[in-house]
Lab assay of single mutants.
Amino acid sequence: YFQGQLNAMAHQIQEMFPQVPYHLVLQDLQLTRSVEITTDNILEGRI
């Protein structure tokens, strides 16, 4: 994955969860590489 793709995914998640800091979303995406998994992590309070 290149950074631009991760940034696009992070923006997509931020639209759904504007209360979660962008850098935390991006940090999780770098591990998961998945909008779905990061979204689940937010919903389950891991982020």
Rank of each mutant, 00 (worst) to 15 (best):
Y1R: 10
Y1M: 11
Y1S: 13
Y1C: 11
Y1W: 14
F2P: 11
F2E: 14
F2K: 09
Q3A: 10
Q3M: 11
Q3F: 07
Q3I: 10
G4I: 14
G4E: 15
G4H: 14
G4W: 13
G4C: 11
Q5V: 12
Q5N: 12
Q5F: 12
Q5E: 15
L6F: 09
A8M: 13
A8S: 09
A8E: 13
A8G: 07
A8V: 11
M9A: 07
M9R: 04
A10V: 11
A10S: 05
A10D: 00
A10P: 00
A10H: 02
H11E: 10
Q12F: 13
Q12V: 12
I13Q: 00
Q14N: 10
E15Q: 14
E15F: 10
E15R: 13
E15S: 14
E15W: 08
M16Y: 07
M16P: 00
F17T: 00
F17C: 03
P18V: 03
P18F: 03
P18S: 04
P18T: 04
Q19Y: 15
Q19K: 12
Q19V: 06
V20E: 02
P21M: 06
P21Q: 05
P21W: 06
Y22I: 11
Y22G: 04
H23S: 09
H23L: 09
H23P: 06
H23W: 14
L24T: 07
L24Q: 06
L24K: 07
L24E: 05
V25K: 00
V25I: 15
V25T: 02
V25H: 02
L26N: 01
Q27A: 14
Q27W: 11
Q27L: 11
D28S: 04
D28R: 03
D28L: 06
D28K: 01
D28M: 05
D28F: 04
L29F: 03
L29V: 06
Q30V: 12
Q30E: 14
Q30T: 11
Q30D: 07
Q30C: 09
L31Q: 12
T32N: 03
R33P: 03
R33M: 15
S34I: 03
V35I: 09
V35Q: 07
E36A: 13
I37K: 14
I37H: 09
I37D: 09
T38W: 03
T38L: 02
T38Y: 00
T38H: 02
T39N: 03
T39L: 11
T39Y: 07
D40Q: 15
D40Y: 15
D40T: 15
D40F: 14
N41G: 02
N41K: 06
I42R: 01
I42P: 00
L43F: 06
L43E: 06
E44Y: 12
E44D: 09
G45E: 05
G45R: 04
G45K: 06
R46G: 03
R46A: 06
I47V: 11
